[in-house]
């Protein structure tokens, strides 16, 4: 094979081309470059949130109102249905539903990570990870708006708050964010290639909502509660709900979440490294 050469305009000499970076190297560069452009995706995500509620007086707090109304309505009905006190049920439902909104948002929107921005991908060279960070950050912003409801509910139905345990929220949120990133990468790429995936995922998310103890207490399962504890979606909600309500988290929640995050990251990275250059052709 003849050596690949290029004219070096700096010295006026012909030099040989360097070895091309490996796929893994390119993938890592992509992820880091995206991080370095944090000003871009934070601005774009803020704009996304603003534009979504453009023209309404409440702005993004429209979302808060919707969630609040849903919690109020469901709280009253379901506490009767499950024969629990509103005092116990409402805080559980509130916290559970708000974090479920985050998880479901990332999963369903994650299918459109790349499809939704195909115009940009086709025209401008930007790190692919930038679109992922934008999506995850946008959903975290929505979470921040919804979060307002939690202190209100906790004031209405005062529970003793274990202040020290609130520190646990931090690693929990970090893990969920990392999970959000790999989910958005993986689902985004698969959906770009196979266009029947987004509707499939949407129906799965709906089913998962009903089988996961979000709006019903896990104790209701009695001795069968252990299998619900193995559900990674429950684990994710549990590690955030426990500290906020001052309840103990289920025994395996942290380990399940950690293992799921690690496995997911590995699988997602392998996929990203292998097919990253194809994304522009898929969308």
């Amino acid at each position: 094979m003849q050596p690949e050469t290029v004219f070096d305009a700096c010295t006026g000499q012909i030099v040989e081309l360097t070895e091309p970076p490996t796929r893994i190297g390119l993938a890592v560069t992509d992820l880091l470059e995206g991080m370095r452009k944090s000003w871009l995706w934070t601005t774009l995500a803020q704009q996304d949130v603003k534009l979504r509620y453009r023209g309404s007086i409440l702005g993004p707090f429209w979302q808060t109102l919707t969630t609040g109304a849903m919690i109020g309505g469901m709280g009253v009905i379901y506490s009767k249905l499950f024969r629990t006190e509103l005092y116990d049920y409402l805080p559980m439902l509130t916290v559970g539903l708000i974090f479920w909104t985050l998880i479901a948002g990332i999963v369903t929107e994650g299918c459109g990570t790349f499809i939704a921005v195909q115009g940009i991908i086709q025209q401008v060279k930007l790190p692919f990870s930038l679109h992922v960070y934008r999506l995850v950050y946008r959903n975290l912003l929505t979470l921040a708006h919804n979060f307002v409801i939690i202190p209100i509910v906790l004031l209405m139905y005062p529970h003793p708050i274990a202040w020290l345990r609130l520190i646990e929220l931090l690693p929990g949120l970090v893990l969920i964010t990392i999970t959000g990133i790999w989910v958005a990468i993986l689902l985004g790429m698969i959906s770009a290639r196979f266009r029947d995936v987004p509707p499939i995922v949407a129906s799965i998310v709906q089913v998962v909502f009903f089988v996961t103890p979000v709006m019903w207490p896990i104790q209701a399962l009695g001795s069968n509660a252990w299998w619900a504890q193995l559900n990674p979606f429950f684990a994710a909600i549990d590690v955030l709900r426990g500290p906020l309500l001052g309840q103990s988290t289920a025994p395996y929640s942290w380990s399940i979440l950690l293992v799921a995050t690690a496995l997911g990251c590995a699988a997602s990275f392998a996929f990203f490294a292998r097919f990253r250059s194809r994304i522009a052709f898929w969308v």
Partner: peptide, 12 residues
């Protein structure tokens, strides 16, 4: 062995 010159060499 092939001599590989860094293509994107830093200009002083």
């Amino acid at each position: 062995m092939r001599r590989v010159v860094c293509l994107l060499r830093q200009v002083p």
